[in-house]
Every structure is written in C-alpha cells, then in structure tokens.
C-alpha cells in the first residue's frame, strides 16, 4: 500500500508544520513572559512571596511589655503571683487595637466562671499537678451558698494566691494557710486538726495520683515538702515552688568515704556531668532533667 513515498508527497504537511512551530514558539514565549520575576530566586517558588508572608499579616498579640507601658502596677503584681507565666493576652485577647488607641479601644475582660474554668475545670486529661476544680464541689467545700457568686469575689485573677484582695493576708494553698484564714471567729489556735476536718493539709488530698505514683518510686522515703518548699516572699506572701537545685540532691548523693555500702549511690560533682558526655551548653542542667524517672510521673491522670 505505501510503496516508495517521496518528499513531495509530504508537501501538504508543510503548513501544518509551520503552524505547529509557531504554536510551540508562541507557547514558549508566553510561558517565558508569564513567569513571575522573582520565581526561582531562592528555590522553586516566587521569591517575593516571602516578603508578603512577613508583611501581609500584622501582629495582634503585642506582649506583656506593651501592656506594662500603661498597666505597670497590675503587671508587677501579676508577675509575682501564680499566674506569672500566664500571658496577659491569653485572658484579655489580642491587645493591638487597645494599645494603639492608648486604651480608648476596649479590650476583652472575660467574665463569669467560664473564664476561669477554661483552665481550671477538672478534666481527666488535665495534668494532675495542675490546680483544677469542680466548681460546685469547691463552692460547697469553701462554704459558698450562692451559686451566682463569681470566682473573682475571692480570687483576683491577677493575684490568684490571695483570697481577698483587700486584706492580702489569706493565701490559697492549704500548706500556706493558717487555721484563722478560714476560721476567723476562733481565738485559740491549736496545732491539732479536728477529727472531722477534711485532710486538706495532706498532699494526697488534692494530688492523690501523684502521691500514689511517688510511693512506688525509689525516692518514696523523701517527703513532698523536701522539694516542693514553701517560699516566703514577704510578710504576707508565699507560694509553693518546685525546687530542683542539684545541691539538694547532692546532700545524699555526693560520694564520700564515710558512707556505708547501703547508702544512696554517690557521685562526684560536677565531674559526673562530664562523665555523662553532657554538652558544654548544658552546664546549668539539673539532676532531674535526666533522673526524672526516680521522682514521680510528671503527669498523672485524675
């Protein structure tokens, strides 16, 4: 069927070839023209896009320093108390508009129990060490009869450790309480706790799971309050802090020739750190950073 075809027999395709060439050239040109100028500047993307990503959005969360410009007193109090690490805008929302208008524009002032319960509602999934309540239980416990009373009647969110913002004497954590903080009518203060009093001064009352977990660990004989000490700041302020100073561990664990064989394992300090191949950057690493397993689970479900 085909036989010998000659060049002439393909002449009718020349125009087609010309059109194809034009098409390809046109397409190549169009492509060249349409590629954005900065495409490929840094990689296979439009270089100018990076600049847009930096400038398209403006920060709305301005940070505590900006808040402190006007609310210095408030911030100072806040920084001394249990909410010190809670950023202002976590509760108050973004402060950009408020700050730019120098306070003329409103800022969120969260109200109602919900505002506190966002963090402090008791949830199984919340870390056991985090203070959390079932508010009805709590109201019952502290003798609040009227359920419409807000948390802020007793706790100032900026200084939650104070029970009463005017007196500034009562403090929240049971370990810090004196009997009179709750039992104001009583003159005599006995060291004995009445039989029927809830055991609120025992760690396990609130921190049951952690205490239970701790009992099974190597340090079970160490008291909670050995590490979680009451730190007195001034006449009326104090808080529970977590002490993790290596010197404290070394009281028992420093190698010494006078120790008996069944004494806790001893080490040379700070040589121990180098032996473990610690990086020089980790010079301020604490014992518990590596030996957490011996203390207690940091998170235990309720």
């Amino acid at each position: 069927m085909s036989g010998q075809l000659e060049k002439n027999d393909f002449r009718h395709t020349y125009r087609l070839i010309a059109v194809l060439v034009l098409f390809v050239v046109g397409a190549a040109f169009a492509r060249w023209w349409a590629v954005p100028e900065t495409f490929g500047q840094f990689g296979r993307y439009r270089g100018a896009a990076v600049a847009s990503a930096r400038t398209e959005t403006v920060p709305r969360y301005v940070g505590e320093e900006t808040c402190a410009d006007c609310h210095e007193d408030q911030v100072e109090l806040h920084d001394k108390d249990a909410h010190a690490r809670v950023p202002c805008e976590t509760c108050h929302g973004p402060g950009k508009e408020h700050a730019e208008a120098e306070g003329e524009a409103p800022i969120a002032r969260p109200e109602g129990k919900g505002a506190c319960l966002v963090c402090h509602q008791r949830l199984a999934a919340r870390p056991g060490s985090f203070p959390q309540i079932e508010w009805r239980e709590h109201y019952k416990f502290v003798g609040v009869a009227d359920e419409s009373v807000e948390c802020t009647r007793c706790h100032d969110p900026h200084e939650p450790l104070y029970m009463d913002r005017d007196l500034r004497t009562a403090r929240l954590h049971p370990m810090i309480h004196r009997c009179r903080d709750c039992h104001q009518g009583r003159e005599d203060e006995s060291l004995e706790r009445p039989e029927n009093h809830p055991p609120i001064f025992e760690c396990s009352y609130c921190h049951g799971p952690i205490v239970e977990d701790f009992a099974g660990r190597t340090h079970a004989s160490v008291r909670c309050t050995s590490c979680h000490i009451f730190f007195r700041e001034d006449e009326s302020t104090g808080r529970i802090i977590r002490d993790a100073d290596p010197r404290f561990c070394l009281l028992c664990h420093r190698a010494a020739d006078f120790r008996s064989d069944d004494a806790p394992p001893g080490i040379e300090w700070p040589a121990h750190r180098e032996e473990m191949g610690t990086f020089p950057e980790d010079a301020d690493k604490r014992c518990i950073d590596c030996h957490r397993e011996n203390i207690h689970a940091s998170e235990v479900s309720q």
């Binding site: 085909s2 036989g3 075809l5 000659e6 002439n8 002449r11 009718h12 059109v19």
Partner: peptide, 15 residues
Amino acid sequence: LGNLFESDATRAADH
C-alpha cells in the same frame, strides 16, 4: 490550512 491538494501519494503519506 487552506491546502486542499490530495492524491494517492498524499493519502499514503497521511496514512
């Protein structure tokens, strides 16, 4: 493309 020329040879080529 305006070219209506056709012969057995072009048909064979097209094929």
